[in-house]
Design a protein around this nucleic acid. Structure first.
Length: 295
DNA sequence: CACTTGACCTGTCCGC
DNA sequence: TGCGGACAGGTCAAGT
């Protein structure tokens, strides 16, 4: 599910509700969902206080009092949903009747954190995601996943030059594979790759080295615009994704190509096609996104 | 080193 | 209705 906009939406929701709370207990049934030694987890996590909720690329980082942090990756189907202790009535508190919160825990619940004022559920149908306990000190350098991540694309200091320079090391591959590469920039996944490439009118199979600077500049802007809009709309709920309150996001109502195969292109009415690029299902308008090559 | 493919899992959908 | 296969928003380890 979750690409940068979805993870950022979860982060913002959790930050409102969890910061300052104490963790009373931790339980997990599937060891790979929380691979640390359960005794160590109990020792370092229980009785600690949540200091902040941070995001890096598609990962969440929760620093705790006591010098440790939770590093969480939702991968394809992870969810982090918080249920306040007083949410039983099912109304108010930002929990519409179709919120996932009313059926928690469920069969995909992997980890349960009991907090002072409520319960945090880590759900993950496909079990690809994880919660890991890490030392907070220099976490961005000591953790192998975080260390390799490229720059955050939505910060003010992320420039076109940074984008262009990072792409040069992937000049021989397709532009779609290149922007999905988390070492080039952090946070783009399949949805925003397709939406960004459509907005920039670039065919996903185009070789990076064959794209003009003008078009790359369009893509740089498009990726930032598409993800910024999605954050405003609470992210994309294609299948599993929900925010920290268990509610779906609405970005896909505004998506131009993603999951719109067989529908007319909003720009030229040509039928949207679904193809395969970089091993991923890929959505294009064959008329607006023509494949071009140099020489 | 750059790049591609399969594996990790469960659930759903589609064709026979 | 049942069954097999393909596929799903991500990353990593292997292979070429």
């Amino acid at each position: 599910m979750p690409e940068l906009p979805e993870v950022e939406t979860v982060r913002a929701g959790l930050a409102q509700m969890l910061v300052g709370q104490r963790i009373k207990s931790v339980n997990n049934d599937w060891p790979k969902s929380f691979p640390n030694d359960p005794k160590v987890v109990r020792d370092k996590v229980v009785e600690s206080t949540i200091l902040a909720i941070e995001r890096r690329g598609k990962a969440l980082i929760i620093p705790l009092s006591g010098g440790y942090s939770l590093l969480i990756h939702l991968k394809m189907t992870g969810q982090l949903v918080y249920k306040p202790n007083n949410s039983d009535a099912g109304f108010g508190g930002g929990h519409p009747t179709d919120s996932l919160i009313h059926s928690l825990p469920d069969k995909s619940t992997r980890v349960i954190f009991e907090l002072t004022k409520g319960t945090l559920f880590f759900n993950d149908q496909r079990k690809f995601g994880y919660v890991k306990l890490e030392k907070s000190k220099d976490l961005h350098k000591t953790n192998a996943f975080l260390r390799k991540l490229g720059p955050e694309p939505l910060t003010d200091d992320y420039t076109f030059e940074m984008f262009k320079t990072a792409l040069q090391k992937r000049h021989n591959t397709t532009i779609k594979a290149a922007i999905l590469d988390q070492t080039v920039l952090a946070g783009v996944g399949n949805i925003y790759a397709d939406e960004g490439l459509f907005a920039a009118r670039i065919h996903p199979s185009t070789r990076v080295g064959d794209i003009s600077t003008t078009k790359l500049k369009r893509l740089y802007n498009a990726i930032r615009e598409v993800m910024t809009l999605s954050i405003k709309l609470g992210g994309s709920s294609d299948r599993n994704y929900v925010d920290a309150k268990g509610n779906k996001g609405s970005y896909l109502k505004f998506a131009k190509v993603f999951r719109r195969e067989k529908q007319p292109c909003i720009s030229c009415k040509t039928e949207i096609k679904k193809i395969r690029v970089a091993g991923r299902g890929t959505h294009i308008c064959p008329h607006c996104q023509k494949l071009t090559t140099k020489k």
